[in-house]
Design a binder for these strands. Structure first.
Lengths: 129, 129
DNA sequence: CTTTACCCTCCCCTTGGTGGAGGGTCTATC
DNA sequence: GATAGACCCTCCACCAAGGGGAGGGTAAAG
């Protein structure tokens, strides 16, 4: 099938699918006559897989690893689990960071009157040491 | 003072400070003889301000807005508070998104044996509809 | 014969900088 | 006077992960 249908079925944009072809992540056959990319069912499955993994915050590089494991019928599930655990750790770190940012900003916002007057604890905090 | 000292005192890299000069965020005087940038105390204060705001996850554009308010001795604190509240909202949205990602990944990881065998619920979930 | 809907490649744009090449300047030391 | 080291400058390329659009080819339908 053509790239448009493959993209629709994978829930991705044509641009994205073309990009994945360019970086060698999901490489379709090429129609010799038209030069059009020719996607098979297996390609669509891979695109769906990658799309889902991306939504799970895996980077393109990690998707490539996961795809390799996905295609290896003998891979140990250990490796997949390790990647997942690592990703969970990263998400945890980012969660903690964002939470602490939010706490600080919230207390700053709470201490600011937010009126027409120029005095502002938020700016004071940002400019202070 | 020269850019190196200004960067050190603001806790930024020289590259970053030069970048801020290029985009017109913090513009130092220029030494006519050497062509070197010449930072004053006020510039250092602005650099520190911007560095802190960046650490608070404000974008460069938002830093520019905040800097404008910071320099305006008559600004209403309302505007600063509004920017802060908006930023808190964004952080909240990202927190929720990451939390749900984490939950899903965690339950996937928990259901995976992580041994030498090829069966892997994580990959199954990624490849399934 | 023309419209419509596809497809292709190629290049620039985004965010917030980082890295390096190639070259000028200042001070200290030999 | 030469040279080394520590500064500084500009300009170009690069990162992630594509998005936007130009310019052009192709295929089927009316």
């Amino acid at each position: 099938m053509q790239i448009g249908e493959a993209a629709r079925r994978a829930g991705l944009t044509v641009k994205t699918v073309r990009y994945y072809a360019n970086i060698g992540m999901v490489s379709p056959r090429q129609d010799a006559a038209t030069g059009y990319r020719d996607y098979g069912e297996d390609d669509v499955a891979k695109l769906q897989f990658v799309g889902k993994a991306r939504r799970f915050d895996f980077s393109v590089g990690e998707c490539r690893e996961l795809l390799g494991l996905y295609e290896d019928r003998n891979r140990p599930s250990r490796e997949v689990k390790a990647l997942t655990i690592k990703k969970i750790g990263e998400i945890d770190a980012r969660l903690a960071e964002l939470q602490s940012l939010k706490d600080e900003l919230s207390s700053l916002a709470a201490s600011c009157d937010g009126d027409h007057r120029p005095d502002c604890p938020i700016l004071n905090a940002l400019s202070g040491g």
